[in-house]
Each structure stands twice: as C-alpha cells, then as structure tokens.
C-alpha cells in the first residue's frame, strides 16, 4: 500500500521541544524540535552517529533527558512526577537486536507485560498473545523458544510483544538491520500493516525505499540536529540542504 497523505492538524501525539542530550561532555542531541500527530508515520534517517537512536530512546525515556521537553500522549516524560512506567505502556518499542527473553516461550514473551501489570489474567493474556501472533503470522510458534526462530520470526515476535499493551505509539530502531536480506520483507510487511491500521509510528531506518513508501514524513538528522524534514517525495526528490543531498547521494 502507498503512504497516506499528511492529514492536517490532527492532535499532536508526540511533542519534542528543545531536546538536548549529552553523554558526559559529548552532546549528542543539540536541540531537537519535532511534532508528530496521531496516526502519522515518521521515518528518521541520517548518517551513523547522528543521534537517531538517542532521539528515539528519549521518547520513552530509556535515556535520561539533559534538557528540553518531551510530551508523549499528553504526559511530559521530563516531569519527575510522571510515572514513566505508565507512559511506556502507551509506547511500544522494537529493537534492532529483538531482545526477546530467551528463558520464556514466544507466548510468554508476549504475555509478560499484560500479566505482570495485571491488565489480564493468564488465560486472557494467552488468548491475546495468540491473536497477536496470528497477526504477525506466527501462531504456530506460540510455544517455541525464541532461540529456535529465524531472525525475521524473532523480530515479528518482538513486534507482537510490543503490541501486547495496546500502545498508541510504536517506535522502531532499525528493525530490519540485523536481518538477512531474505527476511527483511516479512518484517516490513508487518510494519506496513501496522501503519495501515492507523498506528502512530516513528521509525529509524536505513531502508530508504521503505521510508519513501511508508513515511508520511521523513526527518533527516545530522550531527545531533534535525537538518531537514518533509514529505518523502520532497525530501528524496528535491532535498534543500547540502548535507541532505550529500547523504542521499551516498545511500541512494
């Protein structure tokens, strides 16, 4: 399916204002301002070390935020009074290296959060896990151990796990980078379906073709700042900034 047109002025789902992040003396994010509205699919591209992952991890506070504000689903995650665990239940995250729990079965991986957070009984959670697995095409693997799955299957399970708390936002950090080429497609298909369902998504990706196809908007980062952003057709077809042109000439 093709990218849906940018819908104008839906309420902001994520608001990033003046976000700065340093590791020691190394400032990695140097003032980021981004607004993402409900249902929007935003792809983040940029050279290695530009701060894409760090930005994503600041959105659910996996990194401490040095300065600025990040408001997610109405919660200001920089506010110490906000229960970050509560916020994270609204934000699913998918990692490059899957990070499945190896000591649990596939279904148990998905059931962990709903059961532990008392959102469902074990039976309900299993029911839901099977539904999610069906959605990613892996229902028959429910009782397998993660170690017995292929990379593409692992990542699909990881996506199902991230969906278990019914989040309104999904974050993907290079979800296909660690996969063998022949498995990339099956994972991208799952992400595509999610986008079609109206999920708000932020994807850090190296797959330019996929970003072009799926993104409502593409953000190009370089050196800890947002260098250029816009609809994929414009950013890829007619980049305004020299650094964007340079980057795209290398990767396209």
């Amino acid at each position: 399916m093709s990218a849906s047109p940018v819908e104008t002025k839906k309420p902001a789902k994520i608001t990033v204002k003046g976000l700065r992040k340093s590791f020691g003396t190394n400032e990695v994010l140097k003032g980021i301002d981004v607004e993402i509205s409900e249902g929007e699919v935003v792809c983040v591209i940029g050279p290695s070390g530009s701060g894409k992952s760090t930005l994503l991890r600041c959105l659910n506070k996996l990194e401490e935020i040095s300065a600025g504000h990040v408001v997610v689903d109405g919660f200001d995650v920089t506010d110490p009074k906000v229960d970050i665990n509560e916020v994270r239940r609204h934000v699913g995250m998918v990692f490059q290296h899957f990070n499945l729990f190896p000591h649990m079965s596939v279904a148990e991986n998905i059931m962990l959060a709903p059961v532990e957070l008392k959102k469902a009984t074990k039976a309900e959670a299993r029911e839901q896990a099977l539904t999610l697995l069906e959605r990613v095409g892996l229902k028959e693997k429910a009782d397998a151990r993660p170690a017995s799955l292929s990379g593409g299957q692992k990542q699909r399970v990881a996506i199902a796990r991230a969906l278990a708390m019914n989040p309104g936002i999904m974050l993907f950090d290079e979800a296909t980078s660690a996969l063998d080429p022949e498995m990339v497609g099956e994972v991208l298909q799952v992400i595509r379906d999610l986008a079609a369902s109206g999920m708000t998504m932020v994807l850090v990706t190296h797959e330019m073709g996929f970003a072009k196809e799926i993104g409502d908007r593409v953000i190009f980062m370089d050196g800890g700042v947002v260098c250029e952003s816009g609809p994929p057709a414009e950013l890829f077809g007619n980049p305004q900034q020299e650094r964007t042109q340079e980057f795209l000439s290398k990767v396209l």
């Binding site: 996996l62 239940r89 962990l112 959060a113 708390m165």
Partner: peptide, 19 residues
C-alpha cells in the same frame, strides 16, 4: 538489552530484574 526491553514494556526496575 534485556532490561531495556522489559522496561520499555512498562515493567518497573524490580519486576524487570525479578522476571
């Protein structure tokens, strides 16, 4: 990454450690 994955699901530090 194991702790991060668990925390990203909304489980607290103690629960993540334990489970």
């Amino acid at each position: 990454g194991q702790l991060e994955a668990s925390r990203s699901l909304g489980l607290g530090y103690g629960k993540s450690m334990q489970k």
